[in-house]
Design a protein around this nucleic acid. Structure first.
Length: 115
DNA sequence: GTATTGACTTCAT
DNA sequence: AATGAAGCCAATA
């Protein structure tokens, strides 16, 4: 049976755990997913994620707060729209991590990731 | 088996 | 701030 690797599934689960109105970086997701150093794999996993799965891929961005896509690209605009729907301010293809960066606490992790 | 790629990150210019 | 190189490691070719 062909299915995504466990790592990819872990990534998805972690991404889903990102609260609405917040954003996280690829490296952060990888770290929380138990895959430190696999930031790039996170991006790949999100690309593989089917639309049917409610995966908020748009809440994931680069470590510096910039969208992972080039400004003006279709995906970047789409991501921007989704984020704005969640009250996240996106300016010049960037989000202020100081304001919207997700800082997971122990409770969040225990509740949504571990178990 | 090796080589290249990638929705990344960090350090150095 | 912008650009480049090196590091990183699973997935692809």
């Amino acid at each position: 049976m062909i299915e995504p690797s466990d790592k990819v599934k872990r990534i998805w689960k972690t991404v889903v755990a990102v609260p609405k109105g917040k954003v996280a970086s690829y490296g952060q997701i990888a770290d929380l997913a138990g895959l430190p150093g696999r930031a790039r794999l996170v991006g790949k996993a999100l690309g593989l994620a089917p639309k049917e799965m409610a995966i908020p891929w748009y809440r994931i961005l680069r470590s510096n707060g910039q969208l992972a896509f080039e400004k003006g690209s279709e995906n970047a605009l789409r991501q921007k729209g989704f984020l704005q729907d969640e009250a996240v301010v996106v300016l010049n293809n960037r989000v202020k991590l100081d304001q919207f960066g997700w800082q997971p606490n122990l409770a969040d992790i225990l509740m949504k990731l571990e178990f």
